[in-house]
Amino acid sequence: MAGAHRHLLLHTDSPLHRIAPEAKIVGTFLFAVGVALTPRRAVWAFAIDAVVVLSLLAIAGYRPRQALTRFAAVLPFVAFAVFIPFIAGGDKTDLFGLSLSTEGLWASWNVIAKSVLGTGASLILAGTTPISEVVRGLGRLRMPPIVVSIVAFMFRYLDLIVEEMGRMRVAMTARGHDPRWLWQAKPIASAAGAMFVRSYERGERVHSAMLARGFSGTMPQMEHEPASPTDWARSLTPPVVSISLALVALIIL
């Protein structure tokens, strides 16, 4: 199973762990938007953003190796960016004996720089915020209650489903199933269907359990300390930096 989706929380304590989740979610999102708005040629702006991300990763309590492994997990998503210089047109630049598209190189740099910074931001959020806090944060951000409930249920049952799928996979392997081609995928697909039925029936049992405790259609709002002005100020600092850099770069470039 994909290890990339393991729970990413760092079980330590840091000033970042103590910031209210809604502030961190907004901060993370806006930071990524600021980075995305930065023109690709403003290398210095990305460098400053990178300093911000690295400092926050350190404050969050990531060890360098830990951070690197987690960055590596998203490599497949930017792999395509590496090919852009080879297939793009326009002027060519000679690099390491290869004739590459200049614009393609910039495009590739653009995707890689922005993705790495965005990934860093999401690692900081994921590393310092337990899932239950994320769910509460979404609630505080006035997300529609249905959405918050769906997210909460999703996280509650994700690991169970993944583990169950893993057990089914093991059971298949134990009986010699080692599919190599698409037309051998039937057992897996049927297992996925069976998994849906099981998940759904679990949903029905959960609903019974909820009714049994007086559920009347709306999830109760759980108590939660709202984010303090300090939390907001701290969370909004990185996006203020990334957005200001983007604006400065847009003006001077």
Binding site: I131, S132, V135, R136, A152, F153, F155, R156, Y157, L160, R202, R205, V206, S208, A209, M210, R213, G214, F215, S216, P220, Q221, M222
Partner: peptide, 19 residues
């Protein structure tokens, strides 16, 4: 596992009283 559906134990136990 069918009965404990909230993100944390505290919230789960509070679910009934909240209702």
């Amino acid at each position: 596992d069918d009965q404990l559906f909230m993100p944390s134990v505290r919230e789960d136990v509070a679910f009934g009283p909240a209702n």
